[in-house]
């Protein structure tokens, strides 16, 4: 546990709270919320590696990042469905289908990780870059979807809640974008450990320091805004 610092514990705890709030919100609410809520709960799972005792195993580290990627895909799928609903007023499907499909994708990911060689540090770094890249680009798509959804639902009781999700995705963009920035230029910890792909971090202390700090605090802000937004939605949907 010597790799765990207090900040990570706080961060993961806040994601746990945010994930639980989002899951509880989906209970008793419409099916489309299940995808969105499940996605945010998976963020907690993916962040759990920071404090998980088995974190030293490379396959599990990789798996956490894969779960993080699946999280943003599920969230995006949820918001796309909501957007389709807001334009066509059509709803369909069942909650169990969302849970089953997510579980199947997770199972497939586990299978993929464990039938392949134990990932090297470089492979883990690649998986993390893919995860952050997915988050950054899908967050941008989600922000556009939220804008369009808000135009449709702004006069309904839930309308203001989508502004909350806009704040969430802005924080997530800073969180994931700052890490992607560090990874692309080889200024992240994994690159430093790998040596050959490491960038000249010492040559850009301000950019690297700023990105690292933005990454840490935006992660916390993301979890707080997720929890806060779902609580706000629950209030709006009473």
């Amino acid at each position: 546990m010597d790799h765990v610092d207090a900040f990570d514990v706080v961060r993961v705890s806040l994601w746990l709270v945010a994930g639980l709030i989002s899951l509880f919100f989906s209970v008793g609410n419409a099916r489309i919320w299940t995808s969105i809520s499940t996605g945010f709960f998976l963020v907690f799972i993916s962040e759990g590696y920071l404090v998980a005792p088995w974190v030293q195993h490379p396959s599990l580290i990789a798996l956490h990042s894969v779960v993080g990627t699946i999280a943003v895909l599920v969230i995006t799928h949820g918001f796309m469905e909501y957007y389709v609903f807001s334009r066509t007023l059509e709803t369909g499907g069942a909650k169990w289908e969302v849970y089953a499909l997510t579980a199947a994708v997770l199972a497939a990911s586990v299978l993929f990780i464990f039938i392949n060689p134990v990932p090297s540090t470089a492979a883990i770094r690649h998986i993390r870059i893919i995860e952050n890249a997915c988050w950054v680009f899908l967050v941008l798509i989600n922000l556009d979807l939220l804008r369009k959804i808000h135009q449709q639902v702004r006069d309904t009781p839930i309308g203001p809640g989508f502004v909350g999700f806009g704040v969430v995705f802005f924080c997530v963009f800073l969180w994931r974008g700052s890490m992607l920035y560090l990874q692309v230029y080889g200024w992240d910890e994994d690159a430093t450990a790998l040596g050959p792909v490491a960038g000249n971090a010492a040559g850009y202390p301000f950019r690297v320091g700023l990105s690292e700090n933005v990454n840490r605090f935006a992660s916390v802000l993301s979890s707080l805004t997720v929890g806060g937004t779902f609580l706000y939605l629950a209030r709006l949907m009473r």
Binding site: V153, I158, R238
Partner: peptide, 10 residues
């Protein structure tokens, strides 16, 4: 059913 996505039970 549709309105459940934009408004609460009350």
């Amino acid at each position: 059913k549709g309105a459940r996505l934009v408004a609460g039970p009350s």
